[in-house]
């Protein structure tokens, strides 16, 4: 599988957030996108996920433009947004029922990705009583219900403790080993190790970046 993101652009009023974003990713790769607050990282992922409409461009997957074939995109792409898109009053099981058919849910809880994410441990806990790590794991569990080949994750490990970060990292590694593609946005240098390539989004332009451990340089670039 191979994806080509070509000439994605988006403006909000007079402000151009994304200008001509292009990117190619092969299967089994994890791409990290860095950028300061308001640089357009979430907008880019939203457009690729179909949540937002871009002003132009294409999102090709083996030649098929997923922006124009929503049915196919729904099965191929999984999106984990920055927030926690969950029903606060309901428990984890109810939230998962929105995304999983009954049989698939049982299977996944027993030996699938939900088991790997540790969700059975807090299945009956209401979301508004969960920790940030539990919510994020549950959000990931909901996003991967259709076993997507392309994962779009907006700051997946933000506000997570080390244990939770390790669980998420383990899942991403497995996804990558299975030939899946991951695009994630991050502020966390620890997540850089998960990524095969890094890009920096600045002034609406995406450029490759290599992190050599120089934090000051990175901060200057992001500011």
């Amino acid at each position: 599988m191979h994806i080509d993101i070509e000439h994605i652009r988006r403006s909000f009023g007079r402000k151009t957030v994304l200008q001509d974003i292009s990117l190619s990713v092969s299967s089994g790769m994890c791409i990290g996108i860095l950028g300061g607050n308001g640089s357009g990282k979430s907008t880019l992922l939203s457009i690729l996920a179909g949540v937002l409409t871009g002003d132009g461009g294409s999102f090709l997957c083996d030649g098929t433009d997923l922006l124009r074939t929503p049915k196919q995109r729904e099965t191929i792409v999984g999106y984990v947004p920055q927030g926690t898109p969950l029903f606060g009053e309901l428990n984890a099981l109810d939230n998962l029922r929105l995304w999983y058919p009954a049989d698939d849910l049982r299977l996944s809880l027993d030996q699938g990705v939900l088991a790997m994410l540790g969700i059975p441990a807090f299945l009956k806990t209401p979301v508004n009583k969960m920790s940030g790590g539990m919510k994020k794991r549950l959000a990931i569990g909901c996003a991967v219900a259709k076993d997507p080949q392309i994962l779009l994750m907006d700051e997946p490990t933000s506000a997570l403790d080390l244990a939770c970060k390790q669980i998420v990292a383990a899942y991403l590694n497995e996804h990558r080993q299975n030939g899946g593609i991951t695009l994630l946005t991050t502020h966390d240098t620890a997540e850089f190790a998960l990524c095969d390539k890094l890009y920096i989004l600045r002034d609406g332009v995406l450029a490759p970046y290599e992190y050599d451990g120089n934090m000051r340089e990175l901060v200057d670039l992001l500011s």
Partner: peptide, 15 residues
């Protein structure tokens, strides 16, 4: 009030 707004976005993207 307690409805999570980002969930609406995800649902729309999911069809």
């Amino acid at each position: 009030i307690r409805r999570e707004k980002s969930l609406s976005c995800i649902l729309r993207a999911a069809g």
